[in-house]
């Protein structure tokens, strides 16, 4: 693998991650984090924001052939920043302002000079908050795990 391809793979993994984190955050959560971040670059709308549907698929038996489970709403947006950089967002739900914000952030995060500050001020705190919520749910679920040695002494 050439050095260029390696860094591209790395960038795709990093980009996938921040896009997933931004998609799970609310517009107000993102806006709150942006107060501590450097200003976002000016952008032009290339497409949207527009709301549509994605057909969610499952697999028969959980691991067999795909089937169409049902649709969900999704909002997408593409923005241009500077010359050649395009930012994309596909986010669940119908929040157009959030999709646009996420697209602008996606574009800005592709700029190596802005990335560290935006990761630190926006993406990582959002990721930490999401991980906290998931961990809390997991701990509540764990509290309802049956301990059969306890059940054995129940009357």
């Amino acid at each position: 693998m050439s050095e260029d391809t390696a860094s591209e793979v790395l960038d795709t993994a990093a980009r996938r991650r921040w896009m997933g984190i931004l998609a799970r955050a609310s517009a107000s959560e993102i806006a709150a984090r942006l107060r501590d971040a450097p200003p976002l670059p000016a952008h032009t709308r290339l497409r949207g924001p527009e709301t549509g549907l994605v057909m969610v698929r499952g697999r028969q038996g959980g691991d067999g052939a795909p089937f169409n489970l049902g649709e969900m709403t999704v909002t997408r947006c593409a923005v241009g920043v500077g010359g050649a950089v395009v930012g994309h967002a596909y986010v669940a739900g119908r929040d157009a302002a959030k999709a646009e914000l996420a697209a602008v952030l996606d574009a800005a995060l592709q700029d190596g000079s802005l990335r560290p500050a935006l990761l630190g001020a926006v993406v990582e705190p959002l990721a930490a908050a999401q991980a906290d919520r998931a961990a809390r749910t997991a701990r509540k679920a764990a509290a309802t795990r049956v301990d059969f040695s306890t059940l054995a002494v129940m009357r």
């Binding site: 057909m55 969610v56 499952g58 795909p66 709403t73």
Partner: peptide
């Protein structure tokens, strides 16, 4: 609403 596409099949094995 327009249809944007289909998801990759859900991985219910990785369900939280």
């Amino acid at each position: 609403l327009p249809r944007f596409g289909a998801s990759t099949p859900l991985d219910t094995g990785a369900m939280r």
